[in-house]
């Protein structure tokens, strides 16, 4: 390489911009997912099948579907999300790609947030699918404040994805692997299920927005806490 080229590259070496790293990592993950479609199809198939099984498991003569649909939706979200995010680090383990990524000057928390962003987009799409599927099977009426419903689902999903990505990175480096993920994750999801299911349930039953405000705020706090904690501790997990 000539001296001129070296200088040009050296100027380039101002280091990667933080936001640029987040975007690049998210774009890379989404591009890979788009090419392989492995996780998306698995999650989507899971959701539809579970919806169908729930449909068969509920005797509509005895139980009103609206009463339980909310809880079922959140549980399905968790299980489907677990499948999807659990594999998030498989891509990185193949060919030691994560190691290569860590050898670059890209900041660890930016890498983490990039992955969270990509996983969020993926899982939220599945959440929307779940909502649609359950709406179909249980004839649910979403007309009461659909915006609020989407928002609270987004907050819950973000918190879930943030924690699952953090612990996914951890379990990828253990001998037990993915099977350890539920044990680590589920205790922390208690607030998400409690507030999330209560809020979506109320909205489904036609309750006013004021009754769910508190829960939406708690979900937002949950998401914020999860993302912050993940960003700080991710570096500790991926270090060798």
């Amino acid at each position: 390489m000539s001296a001129q080229d070296h200088d040009r590259v050296a100027d380039d070496r101002a280091g990667p911009g933080w936001a640029a790293v987040v975007m690049a990592v998210a774009a890379k993950d989404l591009r890979i997912e788009f090419r392989t479609r492995a996780r998306t199809l698995t999650m989507a198939g899971f959701v539809v099948m579970v919806g169908l099984l729930f449909f068969f498991s509920v005797d509509r003569a005895l139980v009103r579907p609206q009463d339980i649909a909310s809880g079922l939706t959140w549980i399905t979200l968790i299980l489907a999300g677990l499948i999807g995010v659990g594999r998030t680090f498989e891509i990185e383990k193949a060919d030691g790609a994560m190691t290569g990524l860590l050898l670059t000057p890209a900041p660890r928390d930016a890498i983490y947030l990039g992955k969270v962003l990509a996983n969020f987009i993926l899982v939220y799409a599945i959440v929307l699918l779940t909502t649609a599927v359950f709406g179909l099977f249980f004839q649910l009426d979403y007309s009461n404040h659909p915006g609020a419903l989407l928002l609270l689902l987004a907050a819950g999903t973000l918190g879930f994805v943030a924690l699952a990505t953090l612990f996914g990175a951890l379990t990828a480096e253990t001998t037990l692997g993915e099977s350890l993920l539920p044990i680590l994750l589920f205790p922390l999801l208690v607030p998400m299920v409690i507030y999330g299911a209560a809020a979506s349930s109320r909205l489904l039953l036609g309750r006013p927005l004021s009754e769910v405000e508190g829960q939406v705020r708690m979900l937002a706090a949950f998401a914020l806490l999860a993302v912050s904690v993940g960003a700080v501790l991710f570096g500790q997990i991926v270090e060798e």
Partner: peptide, 12 residues
Amino acid sequence: VLSHDTHLYAPL
């Protein structure tokens, strides 16, 4: 750094 692992992403 160049090691045994190629650090490449196969689908890309």
